[in-house]
């Protein structure tokens, strides 16, 4: 059964990708995800300068998922490139970048392109760092300007990862129209409280909520954006089984990403979901993955 998928003209063997921010700070871990069956792997978000991130606790385990505020920890673009440029799996590695404006995004993107990578994912959605991520991504004009700049001045394929923490995600999706693909959604802005310590669960207080609890929110975002824009979409948010993946595909996602699911099922998640998708397609009488993408919206 063919479960390959094409995103922005690039063909991937399967539609199950590693989401940004989960076991993807080091090259060998990213390669481990790919060797474990990920169709592609998105790196941790990389900025211009080194950031240590927040003091632990940076995660909090919940019955329905997880809260995190890692704080965009990253070595800075130059050290990142130094480590990742040696990879022989570059065509399956998507580099996530974050910046405060179009100038910073462009500077990062050029370095990524020069190092031989072909696709970037824009972090327009991290909910817990001031001046970056969702603070950029909830401003439609800024989103439009950043993507215009990147598409006109680089040859990179650009995936834009959007935040669900806005009133109308379709407006942001339309602002990001020049992106080659949209990634929906990043974590949901959230807080955890420890009543016995009378402190926030996370050192940063504010964090991002991921895992099974946010899946319905992500499905709604994918559905609305697909219906309104018809853009190429990658679904992410609470996917831990092949059934979850199929739900996103029926609503228009050409691929999906898993993150928090690694916490539940570890690296075997990639092959498990791919195999489940194959079985489903066969059992339900479909000839390829393409036949179910957006089936419920058409």
């Amino acid at each position: 059964m063919d479960i390959s998928t094409v995103i922005a003209g690039t063909r991937f063997d399967n539609p199950v990708f590693l989401a940004s921010g989960i076991v993807d700070e080091t090259l060998k871990s990213v390669e481990r995800a790919i060797k474990s069956g990920a169709g592609a792997a998105v790196t941790k978000s990389i900025g211009k300068d080194e950031r240590a991130g927040y003091v632990p606790p940076i995660i909090s385990e919940l019955p329905t998922g997880m809260l995190n505020a890692v704080g965009l920890a990253n070595p800075g673009i130059d050290d990142f490139i130094d480590e990742f440029k040696t990879s022989s799996l570059k065509e399956k590695i998507v580099v996530s970048i974050f910046g405060k404006d179009s100038e910073e995004f462009l500077e990062l993107a050029k370095k990524v392109q020069d190092a031989g990578f072909t696709t970037i994912e824009l972090n327009l959605s991290c909910p817990h760092v001031k001046g970056y991520g969702s603070e950029v991504g909830e401003d439609p004009e800024l989103v439009e300007e950043i993507i215009k700049e990147l598409k006109s001045k680089t040859n990179l394929k650009v995936w834009a990862k959007l935040t669900p923490n806005v009133t109308h995600i379709v407006d942001i999706a339309k602002a990001a129209e020049r992106a080659d693909a949209l990634v929906l959604i990043n974590t949901v802005k959230a807080i955890g409280v420890n009543i016995w310590a009378r402190k926030f669960s996370l050192t940063n207080g504010i964090g991002g909520y991921s895992g099974p609890g946010i899946k319905p929110i992500a499905l709604r975002a994918v559905y609305d954006v697909y219906k309104e824009t018809g853009k190429e979409l990658i679904g992410v948010g609470g996917i831990t089984t092949y059934e979850d993946a199929i739900e996103f595909m029926l609503l228009g996602a050409k691929a999906i990403q898993v993150g928090t699911a690694i916490y539940y099922k570890d690296f075997k998640i990639f092959n498990e979901i791919s195999q489940g998708i194959m079985n489903y397609l066969e059992m339900e009488g479909f000839g390829s993955l393409q036949e179910i993408i957006g089936l419920m919206v058409k």
């Binding site: 989960i22 076991v23 995190n68 920890a73 928090t260």
Partner: peptide, 13 residues
């Protein structure tokens, strides 16, 4: 940092 295998801080190869 995380203790549960997702943040990649303690990874060696």
């Amino acid at each position: 940092k995380c203790g549960v295998g997702i943040c990649d801080s303690c990874s060696i190869n």
